[in-house]
Nucleic acid binder design. Structure first.
Length: 264
DNA sequence: CAACCATGAGGAT
DNA sequence: TCCTCCTGGTTGT
């Protein structure tokens, strides 16, 4: 379930278990064998998440960049025995009794630190990276307001805002009452600013709970999958706010869900 | 079982 | 606009 909130959660866990430790890195599947050997035995300085990408900074100017794509998943084990390899494990990271398996990532490669940094710097502002908060929201707002592209596309563009995926895209636009085909340049400054603020709020909930809960009255609870969202995967069902049927359409080959009554 | 689907994204056409 | 990468969970027969 890799939108940005999951990547940040994993980065936090990896830091908690592994930061400052020398890791044993292997590639049971084999496809990552050379890079694994390059970093194995080296100390992991820290893990940084930016949007949907993760950067593991090792000693000796080596950085491992990981992007999960649709399929990628992490699995943590804590055990005194070495856990059995199940399925296709691209990489296993181990220190002491903690074993972490990575499967199916789109990107998993080691480069020097500067190369990784340049990838990082090309990414748009991340609602979960709080540092210069004001400047980050301005970068997003300016980019959207001068773009003729549909806001539904802009929210999915990782150069514009990083970490948002298909679920948050649909839900943010519903919550803002914005029709997804509206050009960025047709929005008001206040609308775009509000989208940023709401993305910070929702993604923090995601990091905290591990789930993409986007209905305010359910934020503190543990709702089932069907109850979590307003429009995502609810095509043909009645809008939770106005009752009209939720629409679906392909936008740039991704499914877009919205309520044509609530979003204008 | 097989078929289908997915919270992504780069590259060819 | 389509294809491909790649893995696993869900759905259908």
């Amino acid at each position: 379930m890799p939108e940005g909130h999951i990547v940040h959660r994993i980065a936090d866990s990896l830091n908690a278990h592994f930061a400052g430790k020398p890791l044993t890195v292997t590639s049971p599947q084999g496809r990552f064998a050379n890079d694994a050997a390059a970093v194995s035995g080296r100390r992991l300085r820290r893990v940084t998440a930016v949007g949907k990408q993760m950067f593991l900074e090792f000693e000796n100017d080596l950085t491992l960049r990981i992007h999960l794509g649709i399929y990628g998943k992490w699995q943590f084990h804590e055990s005194t025995e070495v856990p059995e390899i199940v399925g296709q494990v691209r990489a296993r990271f181990a220190y002491s009794n903690v074993f972490v398996d990575l499967r199916g990532p789109t990107v998993c490669e080691v480069t020097d630190h500067d190369t990784a940094l340049s990838v990082m710097q090309r990414l748009g502002p991340d609602p979960l990276n709080p540092n210069p908060k004001k400047a980050e929201s301005q970068r997003f707002t300016e980019r959207v307001l001068k773009s003729p592209s549909a806001i539904g596309l802009l929210l999915m563009n990782q150069d514009v805002i990083s970490g948002i995926g298909n679920v948050y895209r649909a839900e943010l636009l519903f919550r803002a009452g914005i029709e997804p085909h509206t050009p960025g340049s047709a929005l008001t400054h206040e609308q775009v600013e509000a989208l940023w603020v709401d993305s910070v709020k929702l993604m923090r909930v995601g990091v905290k709970t591990g789930f993409m809960i986007t209905r305010d009255n359910l934020l503190g609870k543990n709702p089932s999958k069907e109850d979590r969202n307003f429009v995502y995967k609810r095509e043909g069902q009645p809008c939770r706010r106005c009752g009209s049927l939720i629409r679906i359409e392909l936008m740039a080959a991704r499914k877009l869900y919205w309520c044509a009554t609530c979003q204008l």
